[in-house]
């Protein structure tokens, strides 16, 4: 399509039509210049690091070998991951963390807030959404401290003293008691606001006539959400799902601060961090940690491809309305 509409962009046709290499070079230069800055960032801060990580993962480099005495070990680190007793449980933790946070909060709660706040007066809705942005605006350390105080053991803790205590629930240290609830909630309260913003703008950009037509056609508010609003914000829903799956897979900041992987909450990215950069024994296994990270990169890329294929993201992309450079 693009080629037939804009033959100049095809170098062969361009050369034939204009008969000069210089012209086609110039017409290719514009797009390259535009893509240059983003391309540079991707290469410098993603592509090269990934190559380095993969190279590291093929070595036994650690703080005991230092940068002098390391050796190439080929796929030994990957073999170790396969047979490591922690691999299975940690992978399961990761899946649990991603699926529950994503469905309950990043998409689920985000959608609920967006729907609620677009069905109340505009100012109220705006205020409501602004409140939900607070967790995202708060520095992570402060934010996690808040959660720690919510969960803290007796005689402290907001849950113990103010919420569950008065209901007669026995005081306890809630973090070890329900570690996953806190890991998922603390991440989810931040994550929900991303979907909330995207969904709100998507809902508000549905033309008013559709909303009126749905009511006149006989929809209740709930039926209008189900039959009209949700189908019309399908693309934002898919985008948020994809984007948040990938970002949850690699995020560990809140878990690190909240539990540091204790009480069975170690996820894959945190495991890589612990192994390579921060552990109790002080032997930083850079090679093994890199292999763990490389696995995560591969999983991420595979999932991105699956999502893009399955959700047909290419149909989302419209032909640009402006003429080619």
């Amino acid at each position: 399509m693009a080629m037939t509409q804009r033959p100049v962009r095809d170098p062969v046709t361009a050369q034939r039509a204009q008969g000069s290499f210089g012209d086609s070079f110039r017409s290719a230069l514009g797009p390259l210049l535009f893509m240059g800055p983003a391309g540079f960032l991707v290469v410098a801060f993603f592509f090269i690091p990934v190559v380095i990580i993969i190279a590291f993962s093929l070595t036994d480099m650690s703080s005991s070998t230092g940068f002098q005495n390391w050796a190439w070990v080929q796929l030994e680190n990957y073999r170790k991951i396969l047979v490591h007793p922690s691999s299975g449980p940690i992978l399961w933790n990761t899946i649990k963390y991603v699926v529950l946070t994503l469905s309950l909060f990043n998409v689920g709660m985000g959608l609920v807030i967006a729907l609620l706040s677009t069905h109340v007066p505009r100012r109220t809705g705006f205020l409501f959404r602004a409140l939900w942005l607070l967790p995202r605006l708060t520095p992570s350390v402060v934010y996690v401290m808040v959660w720690k105080y919510i969960a803290a053991d007796a005689p402290y803790g907001i849950l113990n003293q103010h919420l569950l205590g008065p209901l007669g629930v026995k005081a306890t240290n809630w973090l070890p008691a329900q570690p996953w609830a806190f890991v998922i909630a603390s991440n989810g309260f931040i994550g929900a606001s991303f979907g909330m913003i995207i969904f709100t703008s998507a809902i508000e950009s549905i033309p008013r006539d559709y909303m009126i037509a749905a009511l006149v056609d006989g929809c209740s508010l709930w039926q209008r959400i189900r039959y009209v609003i949700l189908p019309m914000i399908r693309w934002p829903l898919l985008f948020v799902t994809t984007y948040q799956t990938l970002s949850l897979f690699t995020s560990f900041e809140q878990i690190l601060l909240l539990t540091d992987g204790q009480f069975g909450t170690e996820v894959w990215s945190l495991w890589a961090y612990h192994r390579a950069l921060n552990n109790y024994w002080g032997n930083f296994q850079w090679g093994f940690g890199s292999a763990l990270a490389a696995v995560l990169v591969v999983i991420g890329i595979l999932m991105a491809i699956v999502y893009m294929r399955y959700f047909r993201f290419n149909e989302l992309v419209q032909e640009p309305r402006i003429e080619a450079l």
Binding site: P207, D209, Y210, I212, A213, L215, V216, D217, G218, C219, S220, Y227, V228, P231
Partner: peptide, 16 residues
């Protein structure tokens, strides 16, 4: 609106 049994036609058509 759903209990009024009216049909409505819009300038923008508003077909789903």
């Amino acid at each position: 609106p759903k209990n009024r049994n009216v049909g409505m036609v819009f300038q923008s058509y508003a077909l789903y």
